[in-house]
């Protein structure tokens, strides 16, 4: 259970996130929507502690995340896997090593520094890559891959962290429609089959409606809407997005696959 209480983040005098409170039940797929600059990204980065909150608390299973330091903080970061818009892979390293980055918090430091990864960790990483049909490119450099492939590597990295929650910050904003579909389906599979909570920032309202169980709408750093996708009326959506409304509403509605039709993880490559 993730609980956010009165979370605020100020840059100078401007509050990027302003007194935000909500709680997320385990196993849910939450979409955070709103205009660009509404504070969605800062919110997710604060949960992973890449950004420090100015006020308020974040609790996970009763533990105050905002108070963590050092080793405990790193372990929390491993438990709350982050997926970025720009993938944030290390381009000069090969795919397998990039996925193994997800094991940094558990592998002994000296082993990781000289790249003597334990066999078990390599096996987990390869298994994660197999699930996204990427095992055969494990030895390629990450910066030689397409955007869609890179994001799948990033998801594999998140998966080997064995996270309790995945924080996806606009994961599809740099991808074409086909890869958008692949990546969103992968997140949905992870959510439905492993019960990992997913909190996903999305710009596109249609995608958010079709994939998420719950939507949190943000405007100017505050929560402006919180409820089931069905409860989000066109009127509220227009208020949320203001001038950008026409860009995100309308257009062809995306149909999410229903849960039964999602292939089980691992079945693809096996």
């Amino acid at each position: 259970m993730l609980v956010v209480e009165g979370l605020t983040c100020r840059f100078g005098t401007k509050a990027a996130v302003d007194d935000v409170s909500f709680s997320v039940a385990p196993g849910s797929f939450v979409g955070v929507i709103g205009r660009s600059g509404a504070g969605k990204s800062t919110l997710l980065r604060m949960i992973n502690r890449l950004a420090d909150p100015s006020e308020g608390r974040i609790l996970f299973d009763g533990v105050d995340i905002t108070a963590l330091r050092g080793r405990e903080l790193r372990q929390w970061r491993a438990r709350s896997a982050m997926i970025f818009q720009q993938f944030n892979l290390v381009g000069r390293l090969d795919v397998l090593t990039n996925v193994l980055m997800g094991r940094l918090a558990t592998v002994p430091v000296w082993r990781s520094l000289v790249q003597l990864w334990p066999e078990a960790d390599k096996a987990v990483a390869m298994s994660a890559l197999e699930q996204f049909d990427m095992a055969q490119i494990a030895a390629q450099r990450a910066d030689q891959l397409s955007g869609g492939q890179q994001q799948r590597v990033a998801i594999a990295r998140a998966l080997v962290q064995e996270p309790d929650i995945i924080l996806a910050d606009e994961p599809i904003a740099s991808l074409d429609p086909r890869n958008t579909r692949i990546v969103m389906d992968a997140l949905l599979r992870i959510n439905k089959h492993f019960g990992i909570t997913v909190v996903c920032n999305l710009h596109s309202l249609d995608l958010a409606r079709s994939y998420c169980d719950r939507l949190i709408g943000m405007a100017a750093g505050r929560v402006a809407f919180d409820g089931a996708p069905a409860a989000l009326t066109e009127h509220i959506a227009r208020e949320l997005y203001d001038l950008e409304a026409n860009e995100v509403i309308g257009g062809a509605p995306v149909k999410a696959p229903d849960a039964a039709a999602i292939p089980a993880l691992g079945s693809v490559a096996a």
């Binding site: 929390w76 970061r77 290390v90 918090a105 430091v109």
Partner: peptide, 21 residues
Amino acid sequence: DSKPIEGVAASGGSWLQIVRF
């Protein structure tokens, strides 16, 4: 590029690991 550094940090890498990878 700061993105890889953020990526490694977000996965729970220590300072040494962030520098190394």
